Amino acid sequence: MKKSSWLFYMILIISTLITLSSYNWMGMWIGLEMNMMSFMPLILNKANKSSSEAAMIYFLIQSVMSMIMFMMIIIEHINYNLSKELINLVMMMSILTKLGAAPFHYWMPTIMAKMEWNKIILLMTWQKLAPMMMISNMNNSMVINLSIISSVMVGSLGGINQSSLRKMMGYSSINHLGWMLAINKFVSLWMIYFIIYSVLTTLMCKYFMISKVYFLNQMSSLNMNNMEKVNLFIMMMSMGGLPPFMGFLPKWITIQNMINNSNYFIMTIMIMFSLITLMYYMRVMTNMFLSFSTTIKWMTNKKNNALMLIMMIMNLSLPLIMMLDIM
Rank of each mutant, 00 (worst) to 15 (best):
D325Y: 15
N48W: 00
I174V: 12
N161R: 12
H77C: 13
G158Y: 08
P319D: 00
G31D: 04
F248G: 15
N263L: 13
M191C: 12
L82Y: 15
T295P: 15
M138T: 04
M40C: 14
K84T: 02
N35F: 02
Q162F: 06
N225H: 03
S291R: 02
H176G: 13
I234S: 14
L309W: 10
A182T: 05
M246T: 00
I269A: 06
T16P: 04
F70T: 01
E76A: 14
S50E: 14
L99Y: 05
E53W: 05
K3S: 12
I74Y: 10
K212V: 07
S150V: 02
M312I: 15
I276N: 03
M224D: 02
M56R: 03
M138L: 11
A182Y: 06
L20R: 12
S136N: 08
T97K: 01
L318H: 05
I144Q: 07
L278Y: 05
Y281N: 00
M67R: 03
S221Y: 08
L242W: 07
L203I: 05
S94M: 04
N118K: 12
F289V: 09
W179L: 06
F208R: 07
M227A: 08
S238M: 04
E53K: 07
T294N: 13
Y106P: 05
M28T: 08
L96M: 09
I14A: 14
I310A: 06
S66F: 01
P244Y: 01
K302D: 13
N161Q: 15
F186V: 14
I11D: 12
W190N: 12
L42R: 07
Y214T: 12
P250E: 05
I30E: 05
S83C: 10
L320Q: 06
M288G: 02
S5Q: 14
M56P: 09
S141R: 14
M299Q: 14
L32R: 04
M36H: 00
